[in-house]
């Protein structure tokens, strides 16, 4: 599946607690080109995760527009968003969120259960995804038989098994030591450079952010600044506007 671009126009998001409005994002504008790798940084409460959830269709903006590829998310019903997510977005979480009672292969297979697909085809895709993350030989291991880094690699295999255009990663190295973090970030680089996936990664870690082509800084719900990574070449067409 080809990569998708992402465009946010004047996105506002507020939460309500006891009828009190808590604004989180204030008129955010952002463009992420197809095949870009963007790291999103900022202090806690700056709206990073909220932005990730909005782009993933897990939440809807209070105002403004979000387009991912051809999909205008704010116009979609919850049901349509759920179906869209399963086809077009892969999620990677800080705590991996693997099902402890299933093997690595069965965890990776989960998103494919949503599609009408022969078991042989599911098996083939799972094997491919596990090979990409270097865990083909751990297919029958349960999560408690894997290291943290291996668990995260299984979670990445689960995120790519449906071949989505966009990968959203929320602190993917937040629970890993430096060596394992490096492994995961190299893997994300591989998915971006070799497979052309558009990646948006939330992180607090500057070393993790340094693997991205661009780093955007959020503060108090506004886009504070954007940095091009001098080490990595920006993708054509990828730019940010605030």
């Amino acid at each position: 599946m080809s990569a998708a671009d992402i465009e946010l126009s004047n996105v506002h998001k507020s939460y309500y607690k006891d009828r009190l409005e808590i604004p989180v994002l204030h008129g955010l504008n952002l463009k992420i080109g197809p095949g870009d790798f963007v790291a999103m940084m900022g202090p806690s409460g700056s709206g990073k995760s909220t932005l990730l959830h909005l782009i993933g269709g897990l939440d809807s903006p209070s105002d403004g527009s979000i387009r991912v590829g051809d999909a205008l998310l704010e116009r979609m019903t919850e049901r349509a968003l759920t179906a869209w997510r399963s086809r077009h977005v892969g999620f990677i979480f800080q705590m991996y969120h693997l099902v402890p009672v299933l093997t690595a292969a069965q965890n990776v297979e989960l998103p494919l259960l949503l599609f009408r697909m022969p078991a042989s085809e599911r098996r083939r895709r799972v094997e491919t995804a596990l090979s990409v993350v270097g865990l083909a030989d751990r297919a029958d291991h349960r999560p408690n038989q894997l290291s943290g880094g291996q668990e995260q690699r299984v979670a990445i295999a689960r995120a790519i098994v449906t071949d989505p255009e966009v990968i959203l990663a929320d602190e993917p190295t937040g629970d890993l030591d430096a060596r394992m973090s490096e492994e995961i970030l190299n893997l994300l680089n591989l998915l971006n450079s070799e497979f052309g996936k558009t990646i948006l990664m939330v992180t607090h870690d500057p070393r993790a952010a340094s693997h991205a082509r661009r780093i955007i800084h959020l503060d108090k719900g506004v886009l504070e600044r954007t940095e091009e990574n001098p080490v990595r070449q920006p993708m054509a067409g990828a730019r940010a506007a605030s």
Binding site: L58, T82, S86, R87, F91, H97, V99, L114
Partner: peptide
């Protein structure tokens, strides 16, 4: 709860 949230996130209704 996190497992359920993961399932909902990856596309289970």
């Amino acid at each position: 709860t996190r497992e359920i949230a993961m399932l909902r996130t990856i596309g289970f209704s």
